[in-house]
Write a protein that binds this DNA or RNA. Sequence first.
DNA 1: CGGACATTCAACCAAACGGTTGACGATTCC
DNA 2: GGAATCGTCAACCGTTTGGTTGAATGTCCG
Lengths: 115, 115
Amino acid sequence: MTNPLDATFAALADPTRRAILTMLLEDDMAVTDVAQPFAMSLAAISKHLTVLAEAGLISRERRGRVIWCKLEPDALRAASVWMQGFGQFDPVDLDDFERFLAGELAEREASGGDI
Amino acid sequence: MTNPLDATFAALADPTRRAILTMLLEDDMAVTDVAQPFAMSLAAISKHLTVLAEAGLISRERRGRVIWCKLEPDALRAASVWMQGFGQFDPVDLDDFERFLAGELAEREASGGDI
DNA sequence: CGGACATTCAACCAAACGGTTGACGATTCC
DNA sequence: GGAATCGTCAACCGTTTGGTTGAATGTCCG
């Protein structure tokens, strides 16, 4: 995974990781709180967070005994630049984004509870 | 890979596949011609093309005995929308894109010939 | 028809991925 | 100090991925 674009896109390819990013869009969160909505072990979420951190998409900072996860949206910029070159996309309506989030959420709920 | 975003990002996570997309940005190409610059078998490239096609990023059309590959940039739109929601990125300067392409190319050449 | 060309299929392989469980290392609180 | 809490590490497991090779399929051309 030498290329940073590799790491970014690979990190984004997993729906659990995208969901985590979406949650972090709201606010910084402790690892335990990140894990709470998902039907998988804390260790699994911890691994996902490591993948996101290594891609530069989040950062983790220990404060006391809890580790806080913070979105680092700058890492998305490179990938976004790469992609926009292909479509000459219009700058995107934030409403579009809301709809996508809603869609992903609905899909998650439809597919049996959480994730 | 039920979610289309999964397929799109997973397809983009591979540098060979991104390079193929970049080549197709220039013009439609036959499979053999797509494969030519890469140091791997035609079968391997054929698989990559299948991944790209299943993600909707390219289409393939047989004309005579050659199969033409065509970029389908619309499939990138969903992913682009998703990403832009995170950064409120400015619409991207095409020069930025050129620089990224140049960078990827340099990196590929640096890492021992082709890919 | 038969040969050459363009592409995929099938079987296989090693490595990476996404998950589990259980033990372990920090840190706080009583 | 000792118990509880937060998070990661390590070992393991089944599946997917990215590649190989060799055979098979279309399709054109002489």
